[in-house]
């Protein structure tokens, strides 16, 4: 498995765990409130800090395991795979935001619109890394 694929797996796992942790907190707060919880700053900040620290640790460990591969620039095939993955993940984000925009006029719940937008960002990032892995493996 190439260094870039290992990095993509690590990032996908970190983002998935971070996203599940964040939305579990939001769900618990919403149940306690009896309505959609507003965005809670400490959770948002904790999520971002968690993702940043976990990414730095994972990349450092992977980089120490294979320093040459970590310093090598992406080759043409990897650049194409990254570009295509970025392109398609944009559709995931766009679709999520449009779902949120269609949901809002029906329920007039701004907090839900925020959470749908935030979830779309998370999902598009996870999809980007997943698609990178797919393209690295299939070479398409």
């Amino acid at each position: 498995m190439s260094f870039r694929e290992q990095s993509a797996w690590a990032m996908m796992a970190i983002l998935t765990v971070g996203g599940l942790w964040y939305f579990n907190k939001v769900r618990a707060a919403s149940v306690a409130l009896g309505e959609t919880a507003p965005p809670i700053m400490p959770f948002v900040i904790a999520y971002i800090v968690l993702i940043v620290i976990a990414s730095i640790v994972a990349m450092s460990v992977l980089g120490m395991a294979s320093p040459e591969a970590a310093n090598a620039p992406a080759d043409e095939r990897e650049r194409q795979a990254d570009s295509r993955a970025g392109d398609l993940s944009g559709y995931v984000l766009g679709a999520g935001v449009i779902i949120g925009l269609l949901h809002y006029p029906l329920h007039m719940d701004g907090n839900m619109l925020y959470h749908i937008g935030f979830a779309s960002l998370m999902l598009s990032q996870i999809a980007e890394y997943g698609l990178r892995i797919w393209y690295y493996r299939t070479g398409s």
Partner: peptide, 26 residues
């Protein structure tokens, strides 16, 4: 499209961060 996905991400991030301050769904 790859560059556009960055612009779209920014176009979503900025309103979401702004919402933390104004709290207006509209």
């Amino acid at each position: 499209l790859s560059a556009t996905s960055h612009v779209l991400s920014l176009g979503v991030y900025v309103p979401l961060v702004w919402f933390l301050f104004h709290q207006s769904g509209d």
